Simulated scan of single mutants.
Amino acid sequence: MPKEAAQRQVLIRHADRPGDLGWVIMTHGELYARQFGFTADFEALVAKIVGDYAAKHSPAAEAGWIAEIDGERVGCVFLVAGDQPGVAKLRVLLVTPAARGLGLGTRLVEQSLAFARAAGYRRVTLWTTDNLVSARRIYEHFGFALADEAPHRGFGHDLVGQNWILDLHGSPARQG
């Protein structure tokens, strides 16, 4: 029988234990296939993001986090260096259905933005699709602004890809 939320042990920790990276890839693949009908192309994208992080991340500039409830992985997010100096990317935010509604997505993004500020980033960007409504609410809560969007064919579907930007030293940046 599940414990009440107030009695559950919730932990946000670095994604540095054996199995963490594989869990991120597997869970994204399985969950997005089940929820949105995404193909294995999506899992391949997540595998590339996670593989690049594992192979060459700089601990001073990039980090990943796992959310756990009672020792079980239930969420994740990564913050990696962007293509331009001073710009980071928020990647692979996920909270499993059983753990939704507990504020874990917000806590994961909050942790990554605190890290971005401490690491000296000026901006954080992210790419998502418009069907991820709950994630978008979290991004908007922290002041991310929709910079642009365009039709995107991917993961077996016609989607709308969106780029979001957060200026860490002022108001949200909007480009267009």
Rank of each mutant, 00 (worst) to 15 (best):
E68D: 06
G64K: 09
F155Y: 13
D83G: 12
K56E: 04
V95I: 08
V77D: 01
F155N: 09
P97Q: 02
A98S: 15
V77A: 07
D148K: 14
H157P: 06
G82E: 10
L132E: 09
K48M: 13
V124A: 05
G51T: 09
N163A: 07
G75E: 01
G143L: 00
V74N: 00
Q111N: 06
L102E: 05
A88Q: 09
G75Y: 00
L90V: 00
G101D: 11
G82H: 10
A60S: 08
D70I: 13
N163P: 02
A67T: 04
V160W: 00
F155P: 05
R123E: 05
K56Q: 14
I69G: 00
A81Q: 15
Y121E: 03
L132T: 08
A147G: 13
E110V: 06
A54Y: 10
D83L: 08
E149V: 11
P85Q: 12
H169G: 11
R137L: 08
L93N: 04
P151Q: 07
I138Q: 08
L146M: 10
V124K: 04
A116V: 01
A67V: 02
T106Y: 08
E62F: 01
L126C: 05
D52W: 07
A116C: 04
V74T: 04
D52T: 11
A67I: 01
D70M: 09
C76P: 01
F115Y: 07
G120N: 10
T128H: 01
A150G: 09
S58H: 15
V160S: 10
A119D: 10
A145G: 09
V74I: 08
G64F: 07
E140R: 15
G154P: 00
L93R: 04
R137P: 06
A60K: 12
A145M: 07
L113N: 04
L166R: 09
A81K: 15
P85L: 06
R91V: 00
A119W: 04
K48D: 12
H169C: 11
V77E: 01
A145L: 15
G143T: 08
K89E: 11
W164C: 07
A98V: 13
R122S: 14
L166N: 01
S134K: 07
R73M: 05
L102Q: 10
A67K: 01
L166V: 12
V124Y: 03
E72A: 14
S134W: 03
Q111F: 03
G161E: 10
L93M: 12
L168E: 11
S171V: 13
C76H: 02
V80D: 02
G86H: 09
